[in-house]
Computed example of a mutant assay.
Amino acid sequence: MFWKVAISLALLASPIAAQDKAFSLQAPDTLVQTGFLKHLLPRFSLKTGVRITVTEGAGDAALGAEGMPVFAQGETVWHFTSPGGEDMDAFQDWLLSEVGKRTIEAFAPDGTPLFSADVGRVQAVETTQITGNVVRGEAVSLSQCGRCHVVNETNRMNAIGSTPSFALMRTFPDWQERFETFFMLRPHPAFTQVTGITEPFPENLPSPIAPIEVSWEDIEAIGAYVGSITPADLGKPIQLQ
């Protein structure tokens, strides 16, 4: 009877497993030890829902000396190879996109970028599409972000004056990436939980304040809302005589 139950459970679980968006990525230890992949891969996964597991042995795809050049580390150019497939193709396209390039060059643990997206080739620039529910984004922004940031006129008198408003942050060239990864940027990790993405707070180190709890759909909605607002008018630059 037990083996029949086990087989039944396995059959029921199979369709779910088949729907998983994931692949393994072979990477040499010299690259892993830089910490770069811990910076790069979660940002791709958060955007696409594709989970990448790094392995030193054989993987579904690989970073190495052959294939499509995707980023450089000093004079070393790292290449990406894969047999193809929706998830692996999406990762390659993301690495070559404008957002991917900015993410690559944002890795600067000591203040100096260690990797470059300039690998000596002309790549087609991918335009990032903003998705998400604008109405939901406004509601989530007010309820979860409004205790610190001025979201709009609704909470102008209830926010903290020392934090930038949404309209001001909308003027930043990388505003979209900032809003998509805000929970990784200080001080947010100390009090932000993203369903199914961030690890729970350690029991001995609980959040110092009431935590913000959002889903990835909430984050997409916030981005859609911010994309719909008018950037703050900062006036003309000061002209030095």
Score class of each variant (00 low, 15 high):
F2T: 15
W3F: 10
W3K: 08
W3R: 08
K4C: 13
K4H: 02
V5H: 00
I7F: 10
L9H: 08
A10Q: 09
A10H: 06
L11N: 11
L12M: 10
A17H: 05
Q19T: 13
Q19I: 13
F23N: 02
A27R: 08
P28H: 10
T30K: 13
L31P: 09
T34G: 07
T34E: 02
L37I: 10
K38M: 13
P42Y: 15
R43G: 14
R43F: 12
L46S: 11
R51E: 14
I52M: 04
I52S: 07
T53H: 01
V54C: 04
V54M: 01
G57C: 06
A58W: 00
G59V: 00
L63N: 10
L63A: 04
G64R: 01
A65W: 01
G67L: 03
P69K: 02
F71E: 03
F71W: 01
A72K: 01
G74M: 03
E75Q: 05
T76Y: 13
V77M: 04
V77K: 05
W78K: 10
W78L: 07
H79K: 15
H79F: 11
S82H: 13
S82N: 11
P83V: 15
G85Y: 08
G85N: 11
D87S: 09
M88E: 15
D89W: 05
A90F: 12
L95H: 10
L96M: 14
E98D: 08
G100D: 03
K101A: 12
K101Y: 01
R102P: 07
R102Q: 08
A108W: 00
P109S: 03
T112G: 00
T112E: 00
L114E: 06
L114R: 00
F115G: 00
S116V: 12
R121I: 10
Q123M: 07
V125D: 05
T127R: 09
Q129S: 12
I130C: 08
G132E: 03
N133P: 13
V134W: 06
V135D: 15
R136F: 07
A139T: 13
A139R: 07
L142I: 06
Q144R: 03
V150E: 11
V151I: 05
N152S: 05
N158V: 02
N158D: 04
A159Q: 04
S165V: 07
S165I: 05
A167F: 00
R170W: 01
P173G: 12
Q176T: 14
E177D: 13
F179C: 06
F182Y: 12
F183E: 10
M184R: 08
M184V: 07
L185V: 15
R186G: 12
V194H: 03
T198K: 04
T198R: 03
P202F: 08
E203T: 15
L205M: 12
S207M: 05
I209T: 12
I209Q: 04
I212E: 00
S215D: 03
E217V: 10
D218P: 02
A221R: 00
I222N: 04
G223Y: 00
Y225L: 04
Y225W: 07
V226I: 03
G227N: 05
G227K: 11
I229C: 05
T230E: 06
I238R: 11
L240H: 09
Q241V: 14
